[in-house]
């Protein structure tokens, strides 16, 4: 044990001398810094995190929610009826958003989804989103089906942050994109045909949003 302590002491002294010698032999002042993960990034309100990139690889598969400490996260929100307020999907009523199938009632005439990106990634990333409502609105007895159409992603035009592109169902984040705090990047709509030509009944639909990030 004493030998180990002595050895450690000697090594530390050697390192000290080595660095002292370097400092004395140069007048350069070298600066080095690291921008911490998620520096300048805040978690947006009213959003559901679905895409995780540049995690530390610990936990589950890299790029998934199981990966720890991601530098970039894509958030999805559904908008309120006036399409002004963001809402996390998990905050939606358990029974579902009330929708208007006939055009005569109160409720959503359509549902707008908004995608926001928060992060300060160092590498380029690609988010591929799959939004689906395969079964449409189905009645309680499963005999009536009213299709729900999901539009492709639309970017936010001139408001799109530099380094981000939206194409089809893909959102690309370029390497070195500056830190973004919940910057809105794209939107999509779930729509259905409003008509009085539907059979009576209680209808439900489930929209699933899946995101793969790489």
């Amino acid at each position: 044990m004493r030998k180990v302590l002595l050895f450690t002491l000697i090594v530390l002294i050697a390192i000290t001398f080595a660095f002292a010698g370097t400092a004395q032999s140069s007048n350069d002042v070298k600066l080095k810094s690291t921008v911490k993960d998620n520096s300048g990034v805040e978690t947006p309100q009213g959003g559901t995190a679905i895409g995780f990139v540049e995690g530390d690889g610990e936990g589950e598969e890299e790029g998934t929610s199981g990966d720890k400490n991601p530098k970039g996260i894509l958030y999805i929100s559904y908008m309120d009826e006036s399409e002004t307020a963001f809402n996390a999907l998990e905050d939606a009523p358990v029974s579902g958003l009330i929708c208007d199938l006939t055009g005569n009632d109160t409720g959503y005439d359509r549902v707008k989804f908004v995608f926001r990106f928060a992060g300060n990634v160092s590498r380029a990333h690609e988010y591929v989103l799959t939004i689906s409502c395969a079964d449409g609105f189905k009645s309680a007895n499963s005999e009536n089906v009213i299709p729900v159409t999901i539009s492709g992603l639309s970017d936010v035009g001139s408001s799109l942050p530099a380094g981000i592109t939206v194409n089809g169902n893909t959102i690309n984040i370029a390497a070195g994109t500056k830190a973004l705090q919940a910057a809105t990047v794209a939107s999509s709509y779930a729509t259905w045909t409003q008509s009085e030509e539907y059979a009576a009944g209680d209808y439900t639909a489930t929209i699933t949003v899946a995101c793969s990030a790489k």
């Binding site: 679905i50 559904y78 999907l89 579902g96 409720g107 959503y108 009944g201 699933t208 995101c211």
Partner: peptide, 12 residues
């Protein structure tokens, strides 16, 4: 989860 669901309902 990297997927999320949103439920909708309506009555006629």
């Amino acid at each position: 989860s990297d997927a999320a669901n949103l439920k909708l309902n309506a009555s006629i």
